[in-house]
């Protein structure tokens, strides 16, 4: 099969994300990238754990003063649900249903935006209420680098999915764009994988002390 082939519901392959050479290369290359991302985030986690609560004087806020359980919980639920909705999108992609795929991707984007909004609110709150800034302490730098980098990934992921949706809205699915959607959904799941560790290591462990 080649990428530009016109396909129907009947001729759509079982694994459209891996049915052309280009798709196979994308798939492999993207997983290599995710392996690299794992190392990158692990180094940021390592830095955060080493510098957690390392502040120059006692008037600086520590992890246990900052974090708020309900806010983190809502953000976690939003991102976790968005991971499921992108699974639904890929389910419809495999069934050659472009419209339903777009619908579920749209829901994924909305949930992602909700998460991002909460994060913006949260950072703003820390800066204004607690004077917990990027430059105020080693703790601040490590915290904003780790959590902010994740937030940047969410932002990039939203832009990526939206760009794919707009570009392919009228085209429908083919073997050229199906692997692109698949890879974008892998990226979105990976963002959720990182968040699982962030809410555990940064927020929950931060509140335990």
């Amino acid at each position: 099969m080649h990428a530009e082939e016109k396909l129907t519901y009947e001729t759509w392959p079982a694994e459209p994300e891996k049915s052309t050479l280009e798709a196979k290369n994308k798939f492999l290359g993207f997983w290599l990238f995710l392996g690299g991302e794992t190392v990158l985030f692990a180094s940021l986690f390592a830095t955060y754990l080493a510098l957690k609560d390392k502040v120059p004087s006692a008037d600086h806020a520590l992890a246990k003063d900052l974090f708020d359980l309900p806010l983190t919980f809502v953000a976690t639920m939003l991102l976790l649900t968005s991971s499921l909705t992108s699974v639904y999108a890929m389910y419809h992609m495999k069934n050659f249903n472009s419209q339903k795929m777009m619908l579920w991707l749209g829901i994924t984007v909305l949930l992602g935006l909700g998460f991002l909004g909460l994060e913006v609110y949260e950072f703003n709150h820390y800066v204004h209420e607690y004077h917990h800034k990027f430059t105020s302490s080693a703790f601040g730098s490590a915290f904003y680098t780790l959590v902010g980098f994740h937030g940047a990934h969410v932002t990039f992921g939203l832009g990526w999915i939206l760009a794919l949706m707009i570009r392919n809205y009228k085209r429908g699915l083919n073997l050229y764009n199906a692997p692109k959607f698949y890879v974008a959904s892998l990226y979105w799941h990976f963002i959720d994988v990182v968040w699982v560790f962030i809410f555990t290591v940064v927020y929950l462990m931060g509140m335990v002390g």
Partner: peptide, 20 residues
């Protein structure tokens, strides 16, 4: 993909251990 991801994770865990 498993090879890529788990080697990344292996490096990552060593890094966390070292930094801590």
């Amino acid at each position: 993909p498993s090879l890529f991801l788990f080697s990344g994770l292996g490096f990552g865990l060593v890094m966390v251990l070292a930094f801590m």
